[in-house]
């Protein structure tokens, strides 16, 4: 905490005149030393202990209710969001891919809950949907989770008039919501109904609003712009799996780097190409030629019998 306020002091110093700057500089240096020392003292005893800041903020829960929590509990997107310009470069050497094993999905929706929570999404905006699919009348239905497919030939990026949505070298398709003009052409162009639009001013906690915007965290969210699943670049930068992958209790999602030929579902780490070969992996609507980064493994030999959760809910 003290570190942060020091930075602020320094910043203010930069803006004032030269003499003021020096004065502030000394002050800030002093504060930093003291602050740093204090921090050390504290960290010896309470390593990463969280101190309640006493700052209550309003947060939207996944079921759309506003609750008050202490701001120190909000650790989402603490770090890692690059500026809109910097986030146009991908993470060097990576090409992220996802494999979704349909035979293991039982519509537990843990992935969706984690996604809604970490991206501070309201009930009606779902970046990750689980569809109930049935390929033909005789075939049994199955659950199909669908994030953004992060196509290698993305139709949405093709049509964007202002370069607001872009493809990165690591395969991610992101949106710069400080540039988006809200024409919604990308929504019309996406064949997978992936994108959502901020039809009104989004409700967000105060501390999120204060942060500077980054396409890598997609917060703070902005009125009149489009949004979608971003594969959690803030997590990827830290070497962590996206939230949906780690939240799934059944290991449905494999995520990894195609350049490493390895994907991981949290428990198991396997060769990417071999997995596709062994389990007859495919991409949704390959015929469109969009070349998604998300692959599916067919819903054969299911882990769970198909249960219609919606009907169950109604009973």
């Amino acid at each position: 905490m003290s570190q942060k306020s020091d930075d602020k002091e320094k910043l203010e110093g930069d803006h004032s005149g030269r003499r003021d700057f020096l004065k502030f500089g000394f002050l800030a240096a002093g504060l930093t030393v003291v602050g740093g020392g204090l921090q050390k003292v504290f960290s010896d005893n309470k390593d990463s202990a969280k101190v309640e800041s006493g700052n209550k903020v309003k947060v939207l829960t996944t079921d759309g209710k506003l609750v008050e929590v202490d701001s120190s509990h909000l650790k989402a997107h603490e770090c890692c969001g690059a500026s809109p310009t910097d986030s146009r470069e991908g993470i060097p050497g990576k090409k992220y891919v996802m494999v979704i094993d349909l035979s293991r999905c039982k519509n537990a929706l843990k992935c969706q809950k984690a996604c809604q929570k970490h991206h501070l999404l309201p009930e009606q905006d779902k970046w990750l949907k689980v569809f109930k699919m049935q390929d033909s009348p005789e075939a049994s239905p199955y659950w199909m989770p669908k994030p953004c497919l992060h196509c290698d030939k993305p139709p949405c990026v093709k049509v964007c008039p202002v370069d607001a949505t872009f493809k990165r070298s690591d395969g991610l398709v992101l949106i710069d919501n400080e540039r988006c003009i809200g024409c919604r052409f990308c929504m019309a162009a996406c064949p997978y109904s992936t994108r959502t639009f901020n039809w009104e001013e989004p409700q967000q906690p105060a501390n999120i609003l204060e942060m500077s915007y980054s396409p890598e965290t997609s917060v703070p969210r902005k009125k009149g712009t489009v949004e979608k699943c971003d594969f959690c670049p803030d997590m990827l930068k830290q070497g962590n799996l996206p939230h949906c992958v780690s939240a799934c209790p059944n290991g449905v999602y494999y995520f990894g780097d195609a350049n490493e030929d390895t994907v991981c579902n949290g428990d198991e780490t396997v060769r990417f190409k071999q997995l596709l070969r062994d389990k007859a992996g495919y991409r949704y609507m390959e015929g469109l030629g969009t070349e998604p980064s998300v692959y599916y493994l067919p819903a054969a030999n299911r882990l769970f019998p198909f249960e219609d959760a919606e009907e169950v809910k109604e009973k």
Binding site: V159, C160, P161, D163, I181, C183, G224
Partner: peptide, 21 residues
């Protein structure tokens, strides 16, 4: 129809010739 008419200038600052718009 635009969600952000205030950013209409982006059209000229960052226009992408690949876009039908």
């Amino acid at each position: 129809d635009m969600g952000r008419p205030d950013r209409i200038l982006n059209m000229f600052l960052h226009g992408r010739i690949q876009s039908p718009i």
